[in-house]
Design a protein around this nucleic acid. Structure first.
Lengths: 204, 204
DNA sequence: CTCTCATAAACCGATTTGGTCAATGAATGT
DNA sequence: ACATTCATTGACCAAATCGGTTTATGAGAG
């Protein structure tokens, strides 16, 4: 692996992006090392030279993405914030930051979650449950629901926002990084719109 | 093709579902006829027996799905409805109906939209543009935006709803058909919530 | 003028690909 | 009872692709 890390950072980025994108969209089995090499603009032999085997590469990426996400959470997550919309905004900001670093990170992790291939699932189980509980905790735990107008079904609002953020960072849509700021602005404006209309007036 | 249509309908369904699912999740090139045969519980030879070639099957499915969607639109679409939320509700109802008929229809069509394989793209271009303009027309054309409260950015609401419906029918999420009614109920309730809070009082 | 080492093309056996074909066997007509 | 039809499949085919290795090249460091 030292071989890989001796490369110029830009080249590392290119290769990692190519690999994340390939695995993320096609899964472990359907992704060939050739796919990755071609997308990265290097020869297939180099991939093996850097990472050993296809499986090694896969787990390297998994570890790599986990670190990115966790680091971003460590930097940006503030559990003292109890306001519903601020929490969501925070979560989205984290997502956007991750995507800006390596665009296919979430697509890849998402695909890992649904991976079924025998050669890799064994190494996945532990990490999965961990991530799952973490994710729900981060969004749901300790939030202040009291600011909503009476009659507003907060669980429903939550679901709406889940759907929105799923559509918002839809993997399949060839999301350009340049558009990301525009879109995330729209998203934050949407949150404001909701807040303005669903919170009691005293909290606006 | 007569061969295929002589099969019991249930078996046709199984095969089509398997093929739509496979092509939809893995694209044309990465989907092998074996994948489809195995998922459908028949031998690979039968697939060729029924459909000729892999490419023939692909275009058969494309035509099949287009028909399903268009038929459902013909049945359920009412362009005299100008109310924003009723329009959205209608569109969603159509989507749900399509999914109930053949769960992978939209996933498949979505994947066709992003297909890049040389062997098939040529046959796709015309159908694509057609579907695109149709879809935007169906949602945007002739809608009455005047019922919203002043200050509500209708375009933004539109985007929200787009995101919601994307997340709502997220292909990757292993959406069970049994859950579909529950989820679509939630979706409709969400629409009501929005309507109640974004429309001028006189229109509630 | 070496020695090292990143790199890619050529190569390896094994598997998989799209597609065919012969053999089976259940149904049908006579 | 026998012949015919035909859906179905496992075996098969050449060609491509698979994960992975090896060899040849060439630029850079000592």
């Amino acid at each position: 692996m030292e071989k890989f890390h001796n490369l110029p950072l830009e080249k590392q980025r290119t290769i990692i992006n190519a690999a994340l994108d390939a695995f993320g969209t096609n899964g472990y089995k359907k992704t060939s090392v050739n796919d990755i090499a071609n997308a990265a603009g290097i020869s297939k032999a180099m991939v093996f030279h850097y990472f050993g085997t296809k499986k090694d590469l896969y787990f390297y990426l998994l570890n790599f993405c986990s670190n990115i996400v966790m680091e971003e959470i460590k930097n940006k997550f503030d559990n003292t914030i109890t306001d519903f919309f601020e929490r969501i905004t925070m979560a989205t900001t984290i997502k956007v930051a991750v995507i800006k670093k390596y665009p296919a990170t979430l697509t890849f992790l998402y695909s890992v979650y649904y991976e079924t291939n025998d050669e890799v699932i064994e190494g996945l189980a532990s990490m999965m449950s961990q991530g799952e509980t973490f994710r729900t905790n981060i969004v749901f735990e300790g939030m202040d629901y009291s600011k909503f107008k009476d009659g507003v079904d907060v669980k429903l609002v939550m679901k709406m926002l889940m759907w929105m953020s799923e559509g918002f960072i839809n993997p399949s849509k060839s999301l350009q990084v340049e558009d990301l700021d525009t879109i995330s602005n729209d998203f934050h404006e949407s949150l404001n719109l909701l807040k303005n209309n669903l919170y009691k007036e005293q909290y606006l």
